[in-house]
Amino acid sequence: MTANKINRLTEIFTRHEKIMLEDWLREQLTALSARQDLISEPDLCRQSAEFLALFTPACRSGSLTDINSPEWKPVLDFLASVSRSRAIQGFSPSETATFVFSLKQTLLAHLRKELGQDAVALADEMWTATVLLDKLGLYTTEVFQKSREEIIKRQQMEMLELSTPVVKLWEGILAVPLIGTLDSSRTQVVMENLLQSIVDTGSRIAIVDITGVPIVDTLIAQNLLKTVAAARLMGAQCIICGIRPQIAQTMVHLGVAFGDVVTKATLADALAYAFRQIDCTVIQQAPRV
């Protein structure tokens, strides 16, 4: 009975592979008509042919109910790579799943043609095929989602790094221009970057410029103080600068204070202070006549 069942699906695929591929491609092209900007027809054709070339042998040798058996591994791997590349190309999850689901219509049409007389066998086969393709379709969605999550995670990391540069202003003087809000995960990145730069450059002074920080509440002040404390443990003094008047007012209003940390109004003031700290004198030359 089971052997019979396997044979039917496999038989159809083996016998009509070429025609099935054509039908399936047509299905996909209609479903994805709006997405021809993302994938070209030859590419789609190649992917589909490759899928069928893996799917048919898997049907022949593997179980039709358990896609986790080793026979299905090549099919799953292939689907994973398709889903991943579509996630990157900008397809939606349903468009990605359509790749597998669109095969259903083609397959059911062929089953009906083959088994049209035998209602019981037709229902049985349809059920097996539906369950199998549903599983494969859901698998593509799963991989798709995971890939998207990975992309988002990577972008978040890239943004964190982009937004927290540490620059060397002078021998022994670093600057950290902060832009945007300073939550605890950003504080971690800022601290790690700053401390590593202190080690790499042997700097004694770090100027933290908060001109680009829109508000300084208790939590942000606490995070800034943590950064200052960590730098101090490495033997570097921090100067906080770029506190705009309205921010200073809010800070006083909220009762936020930077304790005994040196603060300056502008980056220029901070740099002048830093020069004095490292015994460096800047001389304005007499204007040329």
């Binding site: 790690e192 401390l195 202190i198 080690v199 943590k226 404390a229 960590a230 490495m234």
Partner: peptide, 14 residues
């Protein structure tokens, strides 16, 4: 006190 490593400094503060 000298030579505190970055990871150690961060941990002390936290």
């Amino acid at each position: 006190v000298v030579g505190i490593r970055p990871a150690v400094a961060i941990t002390i503060v936290e």
